[in-house]
């Protein structure tokens, strides 16, 4: 019994490994969800501004807690507020019968590309705001979550890792349940609607799930930019995952969890000048390079 208790102690149990694996799963699922409902391989939680939207909440809450001296766990408060606002916004869009424009006229495709451009601009805006607030906080000697922008798992404990694992399992189950509708949506939104799939409802559900997963990761571990963009592409480069979205969600997300775990393990043990490179920094560098290559390839395809 003592041995079991020792094993479950926060400092002993590999919570970091679990957190990294769960985060990898969530990032992969979020990316797959967003890309399948938009039928656009440039779409992702980063490129659509979902991550930046969550970071905005974290910054705002830190600022508010300083001004109002709130003695509350900021991560949980930020998470709850972010999810509440998202649900309200989605309800508002639902009532107004809006949806992400995925119509495949030439204009419709431009709508999606424009949305991605807006998302990237929003990322830049929030990045600038982040720097501004960091400067402001540091000038006033206030504590600021500087590590937020480049996520890492150094502070993994049972209190933040276990909820993340639960969220990962929930997202996994929910995404699998949606898999047939997502398969039809990723093939053609018109076809899906013709066969009775409520396209707008599926889009809103998928965005909500992606945002929920990202909100958990960002609030407790920081931003892992562009990982949600890279993982689906990585999976679709393997023939096993190319044709069925269910495989991408079911097995692909597990594989990405393992990849992320190994990446974090490598970052922990391969130190650069004695310091650990945050996984979020690595994903940001790799992701932006990958986005650049994707854009060039897309331009070349259109020229042909």
């Amino acid at each position: 019994m003592d041995q079991i208790l020792t094993f479950l102690e926060p400092n002993f149990f590999p919570w970091r490994l679990l957190a990294a694996a769960a985060a990898g799963m969530i990032l992969s699922l979020s990316g797959s969800l967003v890309q399948s409902i938009t039928q656009n391989d440039l779409a992702g939680p980063s490129t659509l501004g979902i991550n930046a939207f969550i970071v905005l909440f974290v910054i705002a809450l830190h600022f508010a807690s300083r001004l109002l001296a709130l003695p509350l766990p900021l991560e949980w408060l930020s998470l709850i507020l972010c999810c509440a606002v998202t649900v309200l916004l989605l309800f508002f869009f639902w009532r107004r019968n809006c949806g992400v424009a995925v119509r495949h006229s030439a204009f419709g495709q431009t709508n999606m590309d424009f949305l991605i451009l807006v998302g990237l601009c929003f990322n830049l805006f929030v990045g600038a705001l982040f720097s501004l607030f960091e400067f402001f906080f540091m000038s006033l000697n206030w504590e600021f979550p500087s590590e937020l922008w480049y996520g890492n798992f150094r502070l993994s404990l049972m209190s933040n890792s276990l909820p993340l694992v639960i969220v990962a399992i929930f997202l996994w189950g929910a995404a699998l349940k949606m898999a047939p509708r997502l398969q039809l949506m990723s093939f053609s939104s018109h076809l899906a609607e013709n066969w009775g799939v409520n396209g707008k409802r599926v889009q809103l559900q998928a965005i909500l799930l992606a945002l929920l997963g990202q909100a958990f990761i960002i609030n407790f571990f920081g931003v892992f930019s562009f990982a949600g963009l890279i993982f689906p592409h990585l999976l679709r480069s393997i023939s096993f995952f190319q044709s069925e979205i269910k495989r991408e969600l079911l097995w692909g997300s597990l594989l990405c969890g393992i990849i992320f775990l190994l990446l974090d393990f490598a970052c922990t043990h391969i130190l650069i000048l004695g310091a650990e490179v945050p996984v979020g920094m690595l994903s940001s560098f790799l992701g932006t390079s990958f986005l650049f290559i994707l854009l060039i390839n897309r331009y070349r395809r259109r020229q042909q």
Binding site: Q35, S36, Q39, N40, D41, R103, H104, S105, G108, Q109, Q183, L184, S186, F187, S188, H190, L191, N194, R236, S239, Q242, S243, E244, I245, E248
Partner: peptide, 19 residues
């Protein structure tokens, strides 16, 4: 049942068989 004008541009290597 409706047939739309828009061209098919599915994500990934999906074939008619999978649909």
């Amino acid at each position: 049942s409706f047939l739309e004008q828009a061209e098919l541009r599915p994500l990934g290597a999906v074939s008619l068989h999978h649909i």
